[in-house]
């Protein structure tokens, strides 16, 4: 699409202002490359510092490791031991995958019902879900962790219920927006053929929802994977998730073991980068689509 715009313009007016004159082209590429380097720089610094001895990091973080400062994988071993990041990775994966699956199933069904059954109650419920989107977590953090505690939801299984409840606003809103645009005819045809609502939903509606489901899944996965305060308050440190494990390195007023910190940051970033590079297309599209909610 952008190709069309620039070539179309060049044909008529010439190359001057379109930004694709070969000279400008290279100037912009150089500028953008420098900017990209600036964007990647912090991560690169963290990566090579993770191989330096922990005492050589804070005073000269930009110096590359050399014979005296190189520490091999020492930081990784001590960090893994201190934080329990391996099990944290497991808990984070478990909580994220299960919560996203439950949210997808639960909220798509709810949204369909709320759109198709029109009355005062469903209307009110819909607006209640939308309302929950604007409530900041601090508003409910204390009471929510108390409720979770009383109801024995303060464990990796229970927190899935909490995530379904707290994350349902945005997801119901997005599914409902899409369902409103689906013509009734298809569902009616299925129902006339004798399918009940459950069959109709899973055979006819659910497959159509796929693009929205991908967006909802990505937005929720990014939120839950990186969430710190909610799991910290609800489950505490019995089952540390990744952000809790990393924050744990800071404990109290003591100084941080910068070596272990660097190594753990690298381990926390690797899965995100892999995930990003393997489904980049969906992530960027999903994030752009999800932005509409504001």
């Amino acid at each position: 699409m952008k190709e069309k715009k620039t070539t179309g313009a060049t044909n008529r007016i010439g190359v001057a202002e379109t930004g694709i004159h070969p000279l400008w082209q290279s100037v912009w590429i150089v500028i953008l490359a420098l900017l990209s380097a600036l964007f990647l720089f912090p991560v690169i610094v963290v990566v090579y510092n993770s191989f330096k001895g922990r005492l050589y990091i804070s005073d000269a973080p930009f110096r590359l490791p050399d014979v005296t400062t190189f520490a091999g994988l020492e930081n990784y071993w001590s960090g893994i031991e201190k934080t329990g990041i391996v099990s944290a990775f497991g808990w984070s994966s478990f909580i994220t995958v299960c919560s996203v699956a439950v949210i997808l199933l639960g909220t798509s069904m709810t949204a369909w019902y709320l759109v198709r059954v029109k009355n005062v109650w469903t209307e009110a419920l819909y607006y209640l879900f939308v309302f929950s989107m604007i409530v900041p977590f601090q508003m409910v953090m204390f009471t929510m962790s108390k409720v979770a505690n009383v109801l024995y939801l303060d464990n990796p299984l229970g927190i899935i219920v909490i995530y379904l409840g707290f994350g349902s606003g945005l997801s119901v809103f997005m599914f409902a927006g899409f369902i409103k645009s689906i013509p009734l005819a298809m569902e009616e045809a299925a129902m006339i053929d004798g399918a009940g609502p459950i069959q109709t939903f899973f055979r006819v509606i659910f497959p159509i929802l796929k693009p929205t489901a991908v967006t909802v899944a990505i937005l929720n996965a990014m939120w839950i994977w990186n969430d710190y305060l909610l799991p910290y308050l609800v489950i505490g440190s019995n089952y540390r998730t990744l952000p809790i494990a990393i924050q744990y390195l800071k404990g109290g007023y003591g100084s941080i073991d910068m070596g272990a910190m660097m190594a753990m940051l690298v381990l926390a970033i690797i899965p995100i980068v892999i995930f990003y590079l393997s489904c980049q297309k969906y992530i960027i599209r999903g994030v752009a689509a999800g932005a509409v909610k504001g």
């Binding site: 109801l151 219920v161 379904l164 409840g165 349902s168």
Partner: peptide, 9 residues
């Protein structure tokens, strides 16, 4: 979903 919403929010 409503039950979870009620408890968590």
């Amino acid at each position: 979903t409503l039950l979870a919403f009620f408890l968590a929010f």
